[in-house]
Design a protein around this nucleic acid. Structure first.
Lengths: 99, 99
DNA sequence: TGTTTAACTTTGAATTACAAAGTACTTTTT
DNA sequence: AAAAAGTACTTTGTAATTCAAAGTTAAACA
């Protein structure tokens, strides 16, 4: 596929993963509950998308206890930030050619 | 889903349909062969995506003969242009909040 | 001991995407 | 006239993706 289109990252074609990554670009870290609330999806669905991003090395998962409660927090890795940023660049180039 | 994300149009989540519509925004009309060459996909795949866009009323299909050869050409309809433009706006708003 | 909370994992169903093969109709080639 | 090729599909079958719902684990609270 020509037209800058192949520069789009398949990982970010899903709205959920696009949402997760954009949240993790703005916020240095977010925990499971915060993501779930922002994205308004079921926990199983969220977990599976987080798992996909983790497998790609785009996010870092940190499990800890806050007080007595388990808390898992997610951060974008450098490769993740790079990949997302590249994707946004591709989208921007793409848009500016399409208007 | 919050964060402007629900404003994204599901029809344009696919790279192929994104590509088709962007080509039809720039070029007033394109025929099957041109689209196939630009997008570099099989004809069956292209036909099914064109069919999806047609069902949504986003493109107009015109069948004719050019010389002795059958020629089908595709144009973006006004609702199609509007929908695509709205999608790009949503993407832009989304991107500017994510960098 | 039983229930709740957090963060999953598993299951299953529905949708989507795609390549490859087949089709219809016409034209060109032999 | 018969065979091959071109255009634009449609059909078929498979693989991948997405999601909700239910089940799981482990600790904490009542």
């Amino acid at each position: 596929m020509k037209n800058h289109l192949e520069a789009l990252n398949k990982a970010f074609e899903s709205r959920v993963r696009l949402g997760i990554m954009s949240l993790l670009m703005v916020n240095t870290a977010m925990d499971f509950g915060m993501l779930k609330e922002q994205l308004n999806i079921t926990d199983g669905n969220l977990a599976s998308h987080l798992n996909a991003l983790d497998k790609l090395g785009y996010i870092l998962i940190t499990k800890q206890f806050i007080g007595k409660k388990p808390n898992t927090s997610y951060t974008a890795t450098d490769p993740g930030r790079k990949a997302f940023s590249d994707h946004l660049d591709a989208l921007e180039r793409f848009i500016s050619r399409s208007i």
